[in-house]
Amino acid sequence: MVKEIERAGFPVVHMCTIIPISQTVGANRIVPTIAIPHPFGDPTRTPGEEKALRRALVEKGLKALETDIDGQTVFNG
């Protein structure tokens, strides 16, 4: 899905936990997330902390969408 949406001309950021699979599939902008059953959350934290964590991840995703890249890039920073 990532690839077909990108082929249509949209910048896409793939936000996921298993990076090797995303790389094999051929996503170009990849942002690693927290865990498979809760990529944008951490149930061990308070709801407030969880939301802050989620917001930081989404900020990273938007940053990736704003970044020009030459090829597959994993946004770790």
């Binding site: 899905m1 949209f10 936000m15 298993i18 995303s22 498979i36 990529p39 995703g61 969408l65």
Partner: peptide
């Protein structure tokens, strides 16, 4: 008229 996409995977 969407400009960009966030695709999430588990």
């Amino acid at each position: 008229g969407v400009d960009a996409v966030i695709l999430t995977s588990t």
